[in-house]
Simulated scan of single mutants.
Amino acid sequence: MEIKIEKTGERQVTLILIGRLDTSVSTAAEREVRPLYDYFEQEIVIDCTQLEYISSSGLRILMHIAQQGWINHCEIFIHGLQPNVYDVFKTTGFVHLFKFKD
């Protein structure tokens, strides 16, 4: 699992997820995404174009990002879900918790 956070605009931050976001990497991944919690009134795009798999542990991390983003008045978007990852979002109801961006 590789995680990158890039400032992609004056009011936009992108979180790039690469590989598999599962239980084996969830503790490290949680630490790596914490800098997102310091952004206020930003657009946060979670780029999943290179995310191959997500488990319930990975979904929990995304929910924490969303919760902190809502507290910080950020707008959270998901971008580029692969079909198998989209199926997980759909099955768990996460498609209703996030906005999606092309």
Rank of each mutant, 00 (worst) to 15 (best):
E32W: 00
E32T: 00
E32K: 09
E32H: 01
V33E: 09
V33N: 14
V33M: 02
P35W: 04
L36W: 03
L36I: 02
Y37E: 13
Y37V: 04
Y37R: 09
D38R: 10
Y39N: 10
Y39H: 10
Y39V: 08
Y39S: 03
F40Y: 13
E41A: 15
E41D: 15
E41P: 07
E41G: 12
Q42G: 08
E43P: 03
I44T: 14
I44N: 02
I44D: 01
I44C: 06
V45S: 13
I46V: 15
I46E: 08
I46N: 02
I46F: 00
I46K: 07
I46S: 07
I46L: 06
D47W: 07
D47K: 12
T49Y: 05
T49A: 13
T49S: 12
T49F: 08
T49K: 15
T49D: 12
Q50W: 12
Q50R: 14
L51Q: 09
L51K: 08
E52I: 10
E52C: 07
E52L: 10
Y53D: 10
Y53E: 02
I54M: 07
S55Y: 03
S55Q: 04
S56A: 14
S56D: 13
S56V: 12
S56K: 12
G58M: 09
G58K: 08
G58R: 02
L59N: 05
L59W: 03
R60I: 09
R60F: 06
R60H: 13
I61M: 06
I61R: 05
I61L: 09
L62G: 00
M63W: 06
H64L: 07
I65Y: 04
I65V: 07
I65A: 00
I65H: 00
Q67P: 00
Q67N: 11
Q67Y: 01
Q67T: 06
Q68W: 07
Q68K: 12
Q68T: 14
G69W: 00
G69C: 04
I71W: 07
N72S: 04
H73Q: 15
C74G: 05
E75K: 05
E75C: 06
I76V: 07
F77D: 00
F77I: 04
F77P: 02
I78V: 13
I78Y: 03
I78D: 08
I78P: 05
H79E: 10
H79C: 06
G80F: 07
G80T: 13
G80N: 15
L81C: 11
L81T: 08
Q82S: 14
Q82F: 13
P83G: 11
N84I: 12
N84F: 15
V85I: 14
Y86E: 13
D87W: 00
V88G: 10
V88D: 01
V88H: 11
F89G: 08
F89P: 09
F89T: 10
K90L: 11
T91D: 11
F94Y: 11
F94I: 09
